[in-house]
């Protein structure tokens, strides 16, 4: 599955047609949703499938059709830029060097697994009457955090409505 993901990503870099790239990014999201299922994260997989493969593809397609206007934008293959390749390779090498000191994949006794997670798992069902610990932590233990996220989405929605100008146009019409 990880190889599929890497192949899709390379396809996104390689292909020229913008529509094909958008479709590939949708497929990329769907494969990563499958990967989340394989790693026992059904909540995250459901979100990724709905958001990544569904909503964001539709928005990308809408933007592609909007920006193709008077003068047809020439679609280009990703250019080869040596300086950028150099930066990417150096950063990647540094990150891979960093992973060598990470705990092995799937180990049950890493610091991250032993800190707060056991407490959540032990207390959450009794304290909140919900067997899905992810929901309990999301809404109850980390309620402030989630309130912040909702406000972020709220402001993003307001921002898009202002940017795309349906309000401003109406105000102008009323003013005239």
């Amino acid at each position: 599955m990880l190889f599929f993901l890497a192949g899709t990503a390379i396809g996104i870099v390689w292909l020229k047609s913008l529509i094909a790239v958008v479709m590939l990014s949708s497929i990329y999201s769907l494969i990563s949703a499958g990967l989340f299922i394989a790693m026992n994260a059904p909540d995250v997989a459901l979100t990724e499938a709905a958001v990544g493969a569904g909503a964001s593809t539709v928005l990308l397609l809408a933007a592609v059709s909007l920006t193709r206007g008077r003068r047809r934008v020439e679609q280009r293959r990703t250019p080869v830029r040596p300086a950028a390749i150099f930066i990417v390779l150096v950063t990647g090498a540094a990150l891979i060097y960093g992973t060598l000191s990470l705990p092995p994949f799937g180990a049950p006794d890493t610091p991250g697994q032993l800190h707060v997670a056991p407490r959540y798992l032990a207390e959450a069902p009794a304290a909140t009457a919900s067997p899905n610990v992810v929901t309990a932590v999301l809404a109850s233990y980390r309620g402030f955090d989630t309130l912040g996220e909702v406000v972020v989405i709220f402001s993003a929605g307001i921002g898009v409505l202002f940017l795309l100008g349906s309000w401003r146009r109406r105000l102008r019409e009323e003013g005239e």
Binding site: M39, N40, A41, D43, V44, T47, E48, V51, G52, A55, S56, L59, L60, A62, A63, L66, T67, G112, Q113, V116, A117, Y120, L121, V133, V134, V137, L138, R142, D145, T146, E149, V152, I153, A156, G157, G159, V160, L163, L164
Partner: peptide, 30 residues
């Protein structure tokens, strides 16, 4: 059970991710 905390963080991050993408696309249209 696997650790639920990263799931919670990523769940919200995905939805915030599409919100930022939407703002970015709106900027591109402008």
């Amino acid at each position: 059970y696997v650790n639920p905390l990263p799931h919670v963080l990523i769940l919200t991050a995905i939805v915030v991710g599409i919100a930022t993408t939407a703002v970015g696309l709106a900027l591109v249209v402008r």
